[in-house]
Design a binder for these strands. Structure first.
Lengths: 219, 219, 219, 219
DNA sequence: AATGAATGAGCGTTCATTCAT
DNA sequence: AATGAATGAACGCTCATTCAT
């Protein structure tokens, strides 16, 4: 199955051959990555809003000042974290949807990728929905944002290709995202998450729903 | 129209006139409510994460220490705010769905309530999605949480009644919520939000989709 | 001697009858004064530029946050310190010069006040000239600024009265100030500061010099 | 005019051409001087107190660590800057006063040098008096310190030569310095600084005043 | 019960200084 | 000798929380 391969790619990619670095450059690169990794962990644990820069550097074991050699702000690490994730995730996801031959392939592929990824990475999931006491906050993990970011473009091109019916691409994207997020959430709350069932549910819902939706005026 | 009534209820915040007192004494007597009201305003303005307890009490005109006579933390006010909202919103919503005679009434009614409410209350909406820099955070407004909170029970009872097909109620609820949230979000980003179109899209999607979804094993 | 009296006034004034205060207002007032006093001490010890807000509060024994209940910045304490000093010093100094009957009384009175004040208050002096290592910095103590601040006005009115010759009042003020500062500085470096000699030197210099100075064109 | 020469010396900073090297190697060889020059520029721009070592080395283009190969602290660079300036300024000033034939030549020469120098170099002046907020701080520029530094010795020798009356040389020096500083300050605040008038005022004041001052006991 | 000043932990940030390269 | 990243103390400041009044 192609998706298994894809998911492997999603989490385990090591970036292309590192150009030989001196010891200095080496530690520099290491530290940068260490901060990004620490940020991913801490964001997932505390949520972005509650995370302080000091939390991040504490996690790395580096000195507080060192953070500022690499990033100017929490936002900047986050951006780097996103870029990092995007680099790994996007190409595979796009290829997946571009190569889809049938409507079902497109829809199922999207959900399958997402649900499997979510199921693999529990820690990340903690970030997706964080219920700080009374309040439900959903924060999109970098990988997830990256994953869905180009969904709309893919949907639009699929509509052009005639693979999907001419519905409002904006709302269709929204529906994909909303259904994926919320169902994944429920899925993980269960004792034995049945990924296949979730895929089946979402795929069928969207596949059938999609036909019934009124054609977009703008198309 | 029944929805109008519902929405009125949803936004109507002032409590029924208490035994007439001087304005001053009145406020004192209702300190708890004053704090809750202030919290609603400030949360909407600054977002939950950015709001400090000081911001809330400043809004009330009370002394900082007084806060702790009523609530132990920001979270606790938020909880109270939720309960407050639920009290007002839920009955109407439940009635709405309990009285639904057709599948479409059930589905459309749910989305119509939500989209109309969201469209009415722009300020609240600011709270729903707050993009602090790079990160997308979605925080559910108390009214909204309250609105969807018992959706699952309504869905379950509708399945029992035979109004809805015997699908996984958990995932169906998730689909309602996800689609509603995300489409509402896109809707508000448009220059002239077309509420009817959004309702139409969501209703048709769910209505058709839910037929295609496999029957739940647990039912 | 009238000057003795004046100098007493300069350092020991207790402000007019305090309106009865509750315990709360009392400590509040005390704390404010404590911070001002601490600031005076620390500024004198470290110089304004080198003094941190933390230095000031450390000196008071109060908690760090307490500072901000009273002042927003270092500058603001300094301003308060100035006002404090001005309140005590200015009236006496002005009266002194306004009552001067002879030219010598005016000149001698000015220097006498200044040198005696400086001799009394060694600590303040530390503030006036601070040689941080290689660098000579002269910082005017609040009392001193206050003391000289209105000198120019007094000089101008003395010129109008005919008590002083019609020379450039700006430059004459400058000469008073410069001579007073620098001689006081040297005086204090000596083992047994001879205040009388300093007064004599400065008074004679200015008194004779000011006759020889060309009349101001603007007068 | 002799003063012109002196002032040229005072501002002329470039050291005599060293054996021609590539610009790069040249800089490396003169790192010490490069730091001193950078310090002069930055001190003048930011003031001594606000200048950080980082500001200085940034200006040189050297690495931060390199600073410590040459100086231990900001103070130490400042000291070096002073010595540097003294080296250039002092000889001319001393010659000026040693060659003075009349009392007036001595006094006028001193003031003339100073006022003209100050008038020429506005930037330096910014360093001399920097009003950070409420507080008046006077910091002597290296050239100025150097200029007045040996004044006392010159005065003493002039007294011995009988050129000046036997007054307290310490206080007389103080009077020169104080009058020069303060009047220069006022002069620069005026729209069209009239250097001649300032010289005239100071010279006449000191010349006449000097006669009236009591003879020093120690002489 | 209400008050509001005091507290002090903790934040983001800067910067002198060190030290492996 | 030069480099420049790492260090960590210290800064200005905010704010939840306490407690004497």
């Amino acid at each position: 199955m192609i998706w298994g391969e894809f998911l492997f790619t999603m989490t385990d990619i090591e970036i292309a051959a590192p150009p030989k670095l001196g010891k200095r450059e080496q530690t520099k690169a290491n530290n940068r990555q260490a901060i990004i990794d620490a940020a991913r962990v801490v964001f997932a644990e505390l949520g972005y809003g509650e995370t302080t820069i000091r939390d991040i550097i504490r996690q790395t074991g580096l000195a507080s000042g060192t953070f500022y050699n690499y990033f100017k702000s929490k936002e900047e690490v986050f951006q780097a974290l996103m870029d990092d994730a995007a680099l790994r995730v996007r190409p595979a996801l796009r290829e997946l949807r571009e190569k889809a031959k049938t409507r079902e392939q497109f829809v199922r592929g999207t959900f399958e990728s997402y649900f499997r990824f979510i199921a693999e990475d529990r820690q990340t999931q903690h970030m997706v929905r964080r219920n700080t006491g009374a309040i439900r906050v959903r924060m999109d993990t970098p990988q997830i944002i990256a994953g869905f970011d180009e969904l709309q473009q893919d949907i639009e091109s699929a509509i052009e290709r005639g693979l999907l019916p001419p519905v409002d691409p904006d709302y269709l994207t929204a529906s994909f995202v909303g259904v994926a997020f919320e169902i994944a959430d429920r899925m993980l709350e269960r004792d034995n998450p049945d990924v296949t069932a979730a895929i089946e549910f979402a795929t069928n819902l969207l596949l059938a729903g999609l036909q019934a939706v009124p054609a977009s005026k703008t198309t």
